[in-house]
């Protein structure tokens, strides 16, 4: 049922369809991450002169912003698109036998491609600014994998529920908006009131973003214990989502 070629083809199509008919075509898939990166680095980091407490590097805030925003874009983008994917791809689901989870996987893959492009540009920027790389950078793919697994768990749940309650899609949008501001991505953790800072450890997005920030900005180890707890919780969530999805799959197909 699960077809690797199909997922790959859908991912490719996701890019080529978005830019179909345009002169530059898929090159736009490269231009957008570059533009975003320039905004983070030049406008927010350099021009607005953001300084990070405890660092001397002029680009520290740019880096801080980028390693928070780029993964968040992949995370939030994938979740919000996943939540609507069954309805959006209704014309396929009601006509051919397609494995429904593979539709989520293609969205996550497509967001990953954008993420990789952004990261490549980001690394080029780091090289140009004589950044001191440390070994922990090799952890990034694994943290990203954990992040997108969490995306899959939330996305699958949202996608299944959206079929029954259309409002879920909007609710997901609102929740993501709050979630973004509840996570220290563009601000630093220290400015939060103590009460909120304490409950921050229950925010899975914070654990992920903080890991990136520690690796890139502070040349530090991420909190391995938090990551292991999150690994466990994420897998449990994906399993529960998948169980719910399996028990409702028949109805999902009937309703579409």
């Amino acid at each position: 049922m699960f077809n690797v070629s199909l997922v790959w083809e859908l991912t490719k199509r996701d890019f080529s369809e978005r830019f179909a008919g345009s002169l530059l075509g898929a090159v736009w898939a490269l231009i957008w991450p570059l533009v975003n990166l320039l905004i983070y680095i030049v406008i927010f980091g350099k021009m607005m002169g953001g300084r990070l407490p405890g660092t001397s590097n002029v680009y520290a805030y740019s880096v801080y912003l980028t390693v928070g925003l780029v993964p968040w874009a992949a995370f939030a983008g994938a979740i919000s698109r996943c939540s609507n994917v069954f309805l959006e791809k209704k014309h396929l689901i009601s006509k051919i036998n397609i494995s429904l989870p593979s539709l989520l996987i293609y969205i996550i893959l497509s967001e990953t491609v954008t993420f990789i492009f952004s990261m490549v540009f980001f690394f080029i920027f780091l090289l140009l600014t004589d950044y001191q790389f440390n070994l922990n950078i090799f952890l990034v793919p694994f943290i990203y994998y954990l992040q997108q697994l969490l995306t899959f768990g939330i996305g699958l749940l949202a996608a299944t529920l959206t079929v029954f309650i259309r409002d879920v899609k909007e609710i997901v949008g609102v929740v993501l908006q709050f979630w973004f501001w509840f996570t220290p991505i563009i601000y630093v953790r220290d400015i939060l009131p103590d009460v909120i800072e304490k409950i921050l450890v229950f925010n899975p997005a914070y654990i992920l973003v903080e890991s990136y920030q520690r690796i890139f900005v502070f040349n530090d180890d991420p909190s391995y214990r938090s990551l292991m707890v999150l690994t466990l919780l994420t897998h449990v969530l994906v399993m529960i989502s998948y169980l719910i999805f399996r028990s409702l799959e028949k109805d999902v197909r009937d309703f579409l």
Binding site: L135, F138, F142, Y224, M228, T231, H235, M239, Y242
Partner: peptide, 27 residues
């Protein structure tokens, strides 16, 4: 069977925990 999805998730959990456990040790 569909059950392989659950098996895969267990593998994945072992894999990631392994990464986060082994990496600091190896370092």
């Amino acid at each position: 069977q569909h059950e392989k999805v659950y098996l895969l998730l267990i593998y994945s959990a072992i894999f990631l925990s392994g990464v986060f456990y082994l990496f600091p040790l190896l370092k």
